[in-house]
Amino acid sequence: MCPNGKKLLKVEGLVKKFGGFRALNGVSIDVCQGRIVGLAGPNGSGKTTLINVISGVYRPDGGSIEFDGCSIYKLPSHKIVHLGVNRTFQVPKPLSGLTVWENVLLAAVYGSAEGDKQQTIRDSLEIVDLSAIKDAISAGLTFAQQKLLGLATALATKPKLLLVDEIAAGLSHQELLWIAEMLQRIQQTGIAMIVVEHHLGFIDTLTSDVVVMNAGANLFRGSINEAAQNEEVVEVFLGR
């Protein structure tokens, strides 16, 4: 049950097949308004696939996805974005021929109906600290900067729910702390999140609510401490 009473995302029994392989095999997850859920699990457990299906990048093969009271199951990405869900990529995919500003502009213009677009772009760049290089061509950005740009474009579409896919991967410890703090700031503006992370340590700094997946299905839900005590969780993380 949600403390503020409102459930934002409700995924039930989600299935995604690639040929004969069931990458998602009946996974369920729900997120309360404005809260962060950590999503952990070993490689290949289906975390990224889940993000891809919720955000409409992949089409699901079964189950249900409800966001803010309406079904987004099998909707195309842009409609899901318009309803208020967006995501970032583990390997960032900026439009490399365009400038940082143009990348965010596109999202501000097409991603959300309301608000002053110029202000939205400025705010989005501000929160990820990219304002200084807004006129740079995004192909020339560092890996970390491209990740931040991905976050800024997602924010410019004014999401209520943000799916953050392995944002810490490939970043230094310093950058990691900084990003964790930034995600907390984003949460304070009222945006709920699913934060996918391979390492439980990063999730621990953000939330105590963790879902652990294995083989395309739920394995565990609870706090990090409980997870560390759970035999099954320990087993899938350490291998047998």
Partner: peptide, 25 residues
């Protein structure tokens, strides 16, 4: 125009364009 920009975005990466809210099709 922004519409032209959205087309260039589609050309470069369909998924990124649609996650910016562009109706690609």
């Amino acid at each position: 125009s922004n519409f032209g920009l959205s087309l260039l975005a589609i050309k470069e990466d369909r998924v990124t364009a649609s996650l910016a809210g562009v109706n690609v099709i």
